[in-house]
Design a binder for these strands. Structure first.
Length: 490
RNA sequence: GGCGGCGUAGCCAAGUGGUUAAGGCGGAGGUCUGCAAAACCUCUAUUCAGCGGUUCGAAUCCGCUCGCCGCCUCCA
């Protein structure tokens, strides 16, 4: 399969350092506030990448960090009159809640910067010993001139960076572009002892230290939002490769932004839309489906209406799962909340049990994996999924005729659910939106009475009751097996 | 100023040198239905911002023009 790497700006064949094993590190969040749609996109993109690699049969080790010490955290903690660690712990808990709400699996390892100060100190010492860094008044800086590759990832040359003249002017630095590895302690700020005096780590060093700790000095994939390309990832490469003399990450993956209207969304602009708010209004699967409808490297513009449209498309796919479950096929197993399973599309195709349906499903599955193999082309994969759903509905229409069998249909749906799993879809109960118990209790007698009216061919009364149910938020669908309620999201 | 990206149907969005330009939403007609809903069938871009060029052949490559956006500073 091919992955676009920012480092080379081309799609490259994925060749992991160890066969059949992928080690990936993704820069997580700085925990000083609630997460927004942009974080959701990044989390979902890498969740899908991780899932699909597992689906392909790779053993994936996925590390995603928390930055729990930095200027913003300290500032916010002071404003709120709590300790920085209290603040970061709170937002870590919030982050987990949000991720669960949108169906993002936990990473295998989720390290916090403050738990890895010793590793960072060791790394900084290596850099000092190698002549890549220098100490000034308890601060340690990385000297970028000592690392010729600096600027390669972001495609910047050093002179342009200087010409930009936005770099912080600090007389003590040998070069204005040098960046801090260690910052000396200021009163009232958290600090740790170090060979250079009490202080705290610079931003970039944590990711180098933690990725090396858990994945080794060289690993396969390093990812994050496109904004992290420079300076963060650029600095990570410099300090890591300077320290080890080894190539750091092999493939660099950056996801595009979520814009709000014409503007980018960011905490500093204050125009954020939180995940918390979003999942109140939208089905999490609709949110995911909407996000995956655009390739991960392209920007996407958020609009409530787009997500609502996507929810209608989702209903089509989900209708199949509901249908299959109604055929009492036990547990459509597209849902594996905590298990990463490798995929065997060929076996699943064969397991359908009816040659005709297998034959029709086959090209859909192939297009699905071809699209995903091509730099995680989720829009292409979704197109294949919709085509598969189409084939399944067609087949279901004809069940009972010409050898078409309900069990084959259900097996086909199971295949669809498995493909969906690789995208993180269909992991919740297929019924989707569940009514509150109170509403369900209210609806029950109305449905019963309506059935009675229909049996007596009292269409007027039946329609009144349909209307009454609609006011409760439920749409009635009459099916051969009886009425079915579809609840609105409230 | 430097670097990079984008402009495909009413809307969203794949495709990046060669059969009929995916898919979704929306819309039109039909089947089914007491009526609906869902599903199914048919249709909905002779054309890919514009203009030139390369090529037997371009939405796809090159040049120019217009429009939009991102990064260069904390940010997913």
């Amino acid at each position: 399969m091919k992955i676009y790497s920012t480092l080379t700006r081309t799609k490259e064949e994925l060749v992991p350092l160890a066969p059949k094993e992928v080690r990936m590190y993704v820069c997580g969040v700085t925990v000083y506030g609630v997460s927004h749609v942009g974080h959701a996109r990044s989390a979902i993109v890498f969740d899908v990448i991780r899932r699909y690699l597992a689906f392909k049969g790779y053993r994936v080790t996925f590390v995603k960090n928390f930055t729990d010490v930095d200027d913003k955290i300290i500032k916010r903690a002071q404003e709120e009159g709590v300790s920085p660690s209290e603040l970061s712990e709170r937002y870590i808990a919030e982050f987990y809640q949000d991720m669960e709400a949108i169906g993002v699996l936990r990473a295998d390892i989720e390290p916090k910067a403050t738990d890895h100060i010793p590793e960072m100190i060791v790394l900084i010492e290596r850099l000092l010993a190698g002549g890549f860094a220098y100490v000034v008044d308890g601060d340690v800086y990385f000297e970028i001139r000592q690392f010729p590759g600096y600027g390669r990832l972001s495609g910047k040359n050093l002179d342009e960076l200087l010409a930009g003249a936005r770099v912080e002017v600090d007389e003590r630095k040998r070069d204005p572009r040098d960046f801090a590895l260690w910052k000396s302690a200021k009163p009232g700020e958290p600090s740790w002892p170090s060979p250079w005096g009490d202080g705290r780590p610079g931003w970039h060093i944590e990711c180098s230290a933690m990725s090396m700790r858990y994945l080794g000095e060289s690993f396969d994939i390093h990812g994050g939002g496109e904004d992290l390309m420079f300076p963060h990832h650029e600095c990570e490469i410099a300090q890591s490769e300077a320290a080890t003399g080894q190539p750091f990450a092999r493939y660099w993956i950056h996801n595009g932004f979520v814009n709000l209207g014409a503007e980018k969304m960011s905490k500093s602009l204050g125009n954020i839309l939180t995940i918390r708010e979003l999942v109140k209004r939208h089905d999490p699967d609709a949110l995911r489906l909407w996000l995956l409808g655009t390739h991960y490297r392209n920007p996407v513009e958020f609009a409530e209406e787009r997500v609502r449209e996507t929810a209608r498309a989702l209903e089509r796919l989900r209708g199949l799962i509901i249908e299959a479950e109604r055929l009492s096929v036990p547990g459509i197993d597209g849902r594996y909340p905590n298990a990463l399973e490798r995929g065997y599309p060929e076996a699943w195709l064969a397991a359908i049990g009816h040659g005709e349906l297998t034959r029709r499903a086959h090209p859909c599955v192939e297009r699905f994996t071809d699209a995903m193999d091509d730099d995680f082309n989720t829009p292409g994969a979704l197109a294949a999924l919709f085509d598969l759903s189409h084939e399944l509905y067609r087949y279901r229409e004809a069940v009972g005729q010409g050898g078409k069998r309900a069990d084959a249909f259900a097996n086909g749906v199971r295949l669809l659910a498995r493909l969906g799993w690789a995208l993180g879809l269909f992991q919740r109960p297929a019924e989707g939106v569940a009514p509150s118990p109170a509403r369900a209790a209210q609806a029950e007698p109305l449905v019963a009475e309506r059935e009675q009216a229909r049996n007596q061919r009292d269409w007027k009364r039946a329609d009144e009751l349909r209307e009454a149910l609609r006011k409760l938020g439920a749409t009635v669908e009459d099916t051969p097996t009886g009425p079915r309620l579809k609840w609105e999201r409230t």
